[in-house]
Each structure stands twice: as C-alpha cells, then as structure tokens.
Write a protein that binds this DNA or RNA. Structure first.
Lengths: 204, 204
DNA sequence: AACGATACGGAACCGTGTTCCGCTTTGCCA
DNA sequence: TGGCAAAGCGGAACACGGTTCCGTATCGTT
C-alpha cells in the first residue's frame, strides 16, 4: 500500500528496531503531523475533505502529502488502519464469547457498522466507484472478508443461517447500507442492517 | 424542477395544446436532441458522463445544456422521468394483481431494483451526498415513497410484515444496496434486497 | 426587410486530485 | 566545523469536472 523509500545498503544504526529504513527526521515528523491532521480534518469535515485542507492543517505543502501517501486513499487507509485492524481482530473474540454463532455474527457486524457510520463519509468513500478509492476498498476487503467468512461459516454450520451467502456480498451489502447514514436523520442504517441479518436466518 | 420561460401575455396561437408557452423552434429541437443524446450517452458511459460529452453528442454547446437543464441532475431526472413514472404507476397494479400484499411489495421492489441496476450508476448518483444530485434524490423520493408506503401498509395490515418500517427507509435501503451493482460480478444486489425483504416478514 | 427577443456556443472560472521541479534541509564525512 | 550530495519540501501548474457569462447568431413578428 505504501511505497517507502527502498532500504538502500547502509551502515548499521540507520535502520530502526523494526527494520524500517530510517528516513530523515523531518520526513518522519511530517508523516506523523499529516496523520494527526488528517484524523482531525476527517472528523470535522468528513473523509472527502480536500487534500489541500489536510496539508494546510498539517502545516505542509500538498507535495509533501503525496510524497508520504501516493494517493488520497492511502492516507485514508493509514488513518483508519488501527480501527479496521481492531475490527478484524474482534471477529474471533465475538465467536469465542457469544452464546451462539449468530449472536457473534450480529455483534461483529454491529461493530463494523459502528466503524462505518462513526466516520463521516467513510462508507461513501468505500463505495465510490471512481478508481480513486480502490486502494481503500481493497484494504477493507482483504482484511475483513476472511473474518466475516469465519463468522458466517460458524453460524451456517450451527444451522442458524442459510449457507448460501458469502462474506464478500454480506460485507458489501452492509457497507452499502451504511452509506449516507450520517447526514440523514430519517435514515437508520443500523436498523436496516438488522433486517438484513434477520433475513439471513433460517425459519424454524 | 425545470424553469421554463414564464408564459407571458401573448395572443392566441403561441401556446400549444397543453398550455405550455411555445418556445422557439430551435430551442425545442435542441431540448429533444439533448434528451436523446443524454439517454444514449448514459447507456454507453453511465450517468456520470461529463456534461461536455453530452453536449457534444447532441451537437450543441454546454451553454445550451444549462439553458434547458439548470443542472446535471435535472437532465438526469428528465431522461429517466418516464421510467420512474412507470414504476410509480406500477405500485397499485401490483397490489391489484398479486395474490397477497407481500407478493405485491416484493414484485414492485423488484421492478424498482431493475430500474436502478439497469442504468449505469443511477443508484450511485442517487446516493451522491454532494448537493449535486439533490434534485434527483428529491424527485425519486417524492414520486416513489408514497407508492411504497401504500404497499408497505397493505402488507402490514395483512399481518405479513412488521409494521415499524417506513417507506422512506426501505427505499433508501434498497437504493443503497443497488449502488455499484453493475461493475462488480461478485456482488448481487437483487439477492441482498431479497434478504432485506425477507427480514421484514413476521415469523409465524 | 428590419428589429427585438430568444437562444446559442464556447471561452473562462472555480474547485478537485495529482504531478513536477527548483529550492531547502538534513545528516554524513572530512 | 564546514561542505556537500541526497532526501525532502512547497506550491505553481496541469488535467478534468461542473457551471457561468456574454458577445453573437437565429427566429419570428411586424
């Protein structure tokens, strides 16, 4: 996703503990400033905030933004990486702690919906068909589809839900339902996601 | 939606049968050419095709586009007006012909989904949060929400579905599920809409 | 035929994302 | 400590989209 400078041959002491090539101090400082500024701007103005605004908030030029994040989508991914990661890791936890697999599934999907509706326009960005946000979409899919698949599989095996819906579709559907959930008081994405999950259940 | 020239005081013979103020011949010709060209371009390149392309296809300048359709959204509305109208009128028909109200509801929603997924990016345009397409959104809501409400009401009265979902939400949900339905073979909007409708049913 | 109202065309403007390149800063080495 | 190449920076410039503006062409009436 990110193309950091290729770690050239160097003498010891120029790579940090994690083996990352060490960049100039100002570069690291700016990258952190950008992440912080972007997070703040996203909260205030949504994920679709102009790159120029983010650059200004971080006190750098637009060129610097693009040096660190090849594209807007990469910046967005970087900002939300932790939360997506947390969501991914919560999958097995739900499965272990819930009374039964369907409860784990609904619990996890709820958490996913939270992630989406909490961040202004994140769902919309995920859905933008423009190649603009492909990287964002790809990251979410890569990270979350397998997690969802395990939950779905467990519930299906337990005979709680139909077995003919795959994780990608469900996740896309849920993501779609969350688009525009903020900014429209008449619309309650959580409600509709609930109905969708209910539609998954096998009638007894 | 459209701001046609105000019908000034005129002598007889300058208003047509429908009482519309009669505009210059070239104006009427261009408007029709634009509608035809837009329809063709939308099929070929999706609803998001640039205004310049549509103008070029119609053989007019961009200024002419904006004279006839104050905004891109108005042009889109005009192009799809007939089909939205047909969909709206189909509501009562389904209700009259289906075996029971829930079947009428699913039949009608199916038709609505067809409308959305058939036209490249129509659903996405409907959902664009940009004020850009507000007019489009408003038109769909105005025309279809009442129709959907009647179907929902009939099914709820018959005890087939829960009574606590309103037409606006359902329509938005269905519309959202249709976003990006073309251009992604792994995603089947119709399928998910089916699940959502299934989630509406009361367990017996 | 002349003339005023109507309509046209497309250059120009604004707001986006993204690229490019001359200049600055950093950090190594002598 | 001073010099210097590489790394990084800033922001003007470009591409592209919607929309506006206004001088010019066309229409239809007198």
């Amino acid at each position: 996703m990110f193309r950091f400078a290729n770690p050239e041959e160097r003498t010891d002491g120029v790579t940090d503990a994690t083996g990352q090539a060490r960049r100039r101090a100002d570069a690291r400082r700016n990258q952190q400033a950008l992440l912080d500024a972007a997070a703040a701007v996203f909260v205030a103005a949504g994920v679709e905030a102009p790159v120029r605004d983010i650059a200004a908030a971080a006190g750098v030029g637009v060129g610097t933004v693009y040096r660190h994040f090849p594209t807007r989508a990469d910046l967005v991914v970087a900002v939300y990486r932790h939360q997506v990661e947390a969501c991914a890791e919560a999958g097995p936890t739900h499965l272990a702690e819930a009374a039964h697999p369907y409860a784990a599934l609904t619990g996890w999907v709820d958490q996913f919906v939270d992630l989406l509706v909490t961040k202004h326009g994140l769902a919309a960005a995920l859905r933008a068909d423009s190649a603009q946000f492909d990287a964002l979409h790809a990251y979410f899919v890569d990270r979350l589809v397998p997690v969802c698949a395990r939950l779905l599989d467990a519930a299906a095996t337990a005979g709680e839900i139909r077995a003919d819906v795959d994780a990608y579709q469900l996740l896309r559907g849920v993501g779609n339902l969350c688009v525009g959930a903020d900014s429209d008081p008449r619309y309650d994405a959580r409600r509709l996601v609930g109905l969708l999950l209910d539609g998954l259940r096998l009638r007894t």
